[in-house]
Design a binder for these strands. Structure first.
Length: 685
DNA sequence: CCAAAGTTTAG
DNA sequence: TAAACTTTG
């Protein structure tokens, strides 16, 4: 009965961030149709500045081991390849295994959008059938549109729409019972190295707290749903308790299917609704909302692929960021003088983890009090977080920075002292992570600078010596922020006027300037006590350019013994900008229908993109272009990701008939609702 | 019933 | 911080 090997379709299955065998549509499709060769390609240099950080690489390595053993026990081998060019490596594997098909699951970060499209063209041109699937989202970004068939630009209506779609997210697929392996005798695996010697010690600690791998992810999900979920609505505000799901790293690497999460949580919710358990019901809503934010981050990334490096609201281009690496360093080290902020930063450093609320606190402090460029902070998160996720982190930082239409107000400064008493009322969190303040009474724990001298003495705290005074006073930060915003609006107005007058070189249209790189070695002298800024401090160094992230290697000092070393940033310091490839999207077809499946594609008729991963420049889909064509659930037709049109109408986030009343802030600054005009940008890029 | 005062909530 | 929602006089 066996057909000859030649006539049997041979699938190649390309794993990326879908490291599971359960509910993996690409895997399921492959298994259904023939022999399968499973592949993982490690080409981190292609990620440009977003080379994974130490903890993230550790997780990946563990997850791959786990997947490898699953695949082997199902009957197939798992090929791993070290590569500097995914495309050529894939071609190589295709040839050496005689594969006729390539299956994989979608990714939505800007780099993958471009790379996957290019790969598909490349392989299709060589007679390989390529199919791609949704394994990462409840609904594909191109399935969710508003009543005018345009993409949503704010979260709440987006999420409402997701929750009221005419069809449910696909039900999870069971793992295959057995996988027929393809011939891999000509395709040896490379041994992948994810850590260097200096990182081993720190990584060993991670294994005590975390268990990567899809089966463990599944266990964590079950444990969460049967445990903390019911109290989630109450507990999620506490910085110090393990009451969140802790699923984000599992989700990032696709060890866990969000669709499974969705269906299990909803089943639980129905039970609680039946029991009349309001808190449980609400907990499910809130938890699913945070899953929704993850969905939205992909949605935004798909519709605005530059969101990881450029503000989505155009006026933010004119914000005069404070360029102060001393601030940056103090923030990273947890030496800002604000206990809640510092505790968070120490926890992040020590564990690669941070409670969601604390992420908001430290990033909002970073942007609003220190006024450092948000991309620096995002990069540091990227390097240190176990669940570092480009789309989610870009969404978070843009939200905090006020560069989203529904983000935090630009002129709002949260006071870490008050937030401290809100999220850590007893100071336990601060005491855990700041041993130098451990003996301070709760009354003063979140504002030691106000404490009477005898109290400080009794607690062994010497401000300015073993714990810093506030690096910037809140009142000074407020004043400074007002100045910066005034300057920003002035420049924005000037620029608009210049453009209207046809004086093309609009004043300070800074996003067109090259991003400024920092010198490799920074001669910041190590001041244990960073300069304090008060109301009468001299002017700070401000710049409008959206700067590159400075190298963190050279500037981090050991302040505590437990700070192993600064491997966190060492990758960032390497020069790995050498992955140039010119991408030309000229030939993209209008509509893709290849073996029933296709992936999001990028197309640009006018411009040959010089694709430099270190600085992605992709023309962005305009609101008007959004195709409204519907997608079938699995492997259906996908709208081509279209280029900007020539129309120059700028997108508005209107707060009109939908009943969103505009705040006084918005009345003063209506531009706060206006998306950056990507079309204009892309024409000059 | 209204308005003021208090409470909650936001990624 | 500030807006929306709830409680109270």
């Amino acid at each position: 009965m066996r057909s000859s090997p030649c006539s049997k379709p041979k699938r190649r299955l390309w794993f990326r961030r879908d490291l599971r065998v359960e509910d993996n549509p690409a895997l399921a499709a492959g298994v259904r149709l023939g022999e399968v060769v499973a592949v993982f390609i490690w080409a981190p240099e292609e990620e440009g500045p977003f080379f994974p950080g130490r903890v993230s690489r550790w997780w990946l390595s563990q997850s791959l081991l786990h997947l490898d053993s699953s695949l082997r026990s199902l009957g197939t081998s798992f090929i791993t390849k070290r590569s500097f060019d995914t495309a050529s490596t894939l071609l190589e594997i295709v040839h050496s295994t005689g594969a006729t098909n390539l299956f994989f699951n979608h990714l939505y970060d800007p780099l993958s959008l471009v790379r996957d499209h290019r790969l598909k063209e490349l392989l299709t041109a060589r007679g390989i059938t390529v199919r791609s699937f949704n394994a990462d989202l409840l609904y594909e970004p191109w399935e969710v549109y508003d009543e005018n068939s345009r993409p949503f630009t704010t979260f709440a209506p987006f999420w409402n729409k997701c929750l009221s779609m005419p069809y449910d997210p696909a039900a999870p697929l069971l793992p295959p019972k057995r996988i027929t392996t393809g011939d891999v005798s000509m395709c040896p695996s490379d041994t992948l190295v994810f850590e260097d010697e200096s990182e081993k010690g720190s990584n060993a600690l991670l294994a005590r707290a975390w268990s990567p791998g899809w089966r463990n992810a599944d266990k964590s999900l079950t444990a969460f749903i049967n445990g903390p979920l019911i109290e989630y609505s109450i507990n999620r505000k506490k910085a110090d308790a393990a009451t969140t799901s802790l699923l984000s790293p599992h989700l990032h690497f696709g060890e866990l299917s969000v669709r499974k999460v969705f269906h299990l949580v909803r089943m639980k919710q129905l039970v609680w609704i039946n029991e009349g358990n309001r808190a449980g019901e609400e907990s499910c809503n809130l938890f699913m909302r945070s899953i929704g934010l993850r969905e939205y981050s992909r949605y935004l990334s798909f519709n605005h692929p530059c969101s990881h490096e450029r503000p989505l609201l155009s006026h933010l281009r004119f914000f005069p960021w404070v360029i102060d690496e001393g601030y940056f360093k103090a923030w990273r080290q947890g030496r800002t003088g604000y206990p809640l902020v510092d505790a968070g930063m120490r926890e992040l450093w020590a564990t690669g983890w941070l409670h969601d609320r604390i992420r908001v606190v430290v990033s909002s402090f970073f942007v609003k009090v220190l006024q450092l460029p948000w991309r620096w902070g995002m990069k540091y998160f990227w390097d240190t977080l176990l669940d570092a996720d480009l789309e989610s982190d870009a969404l978070g930082w843009q939200y905090i920075s006020g560069t989203l239409p529904d983000g935090r107000e630009l002129d709002r400064i949260d006071n870490p002292q008050f937030e401290g008493y809100k999220f850590d009322p007893n100071g336990e969190y601060v005491r855990r992570w700041l041993p130098e303040l451990a003996r301070l009474p709760t009354e003063w724990i979140h504002h030691p600078w106000d404490a009477p001298e005898p109290v400080l003495q009794a607690a062994g705290v010497e401000l300015g010596s073993n714990y810093p005074l506030p690096i910037v006073e809140i009142a000074a930060a407020k004043a400074r922020l007002q100045d910066a915003l005034a300057e920003m609006w002035q420049l924005e107005a000037a620029s608009r006027a210049a453009i209207e007058n046809g004086t093309e070189e609009g004043l300070g249209d800074s996003s067109e300037l090259p991003l400024i790189d920092f010198p490799e070695e920074m001669q910041m002298e190590v001041h244990l006590e960073p300069l304090r800024i008060t109301n009468n401090s001299p002017a700070v160094d401000r710049r409008h350019e959206d700067q590159m992230v400075p190298s963190m290697t050279s500037s981090v000092v050991r302040v505590e013994e437990e700070e192993v070393s600064t491997d966190v940033g060492n990758i960032a310091g390497d020069s790995r900008q050498e992955v140039p490839s010119n991408v030309n999207f000229d030939e993209a077809p209008e509509r893709e229908e290849i073996d029933g499946g296709s992936l999001p594609t990028v197309r640009d008729n006018n411009v040959v993109q010089h694709f430099n991963p270190a600085r992605l420049q992709i023309p962005v889909q305009s609101m008007e272009d959004s195709s409204s064509s519907r997608t079938e659930r699995d492997g259906g037709v996908v709208p081509v990701w279209s280029p900007p049109t020539t129309s120059s109408r700028s997108e508005q986030f209107v707060a009109d008939d939908t009943g969103i009343t505009s705040s006084s802030y918005l009345q003063r600054h209506p531009q706060s609702h206006q998306l950056i005009n990507w079309r204009q940008l892309s024409q000059t890029m």
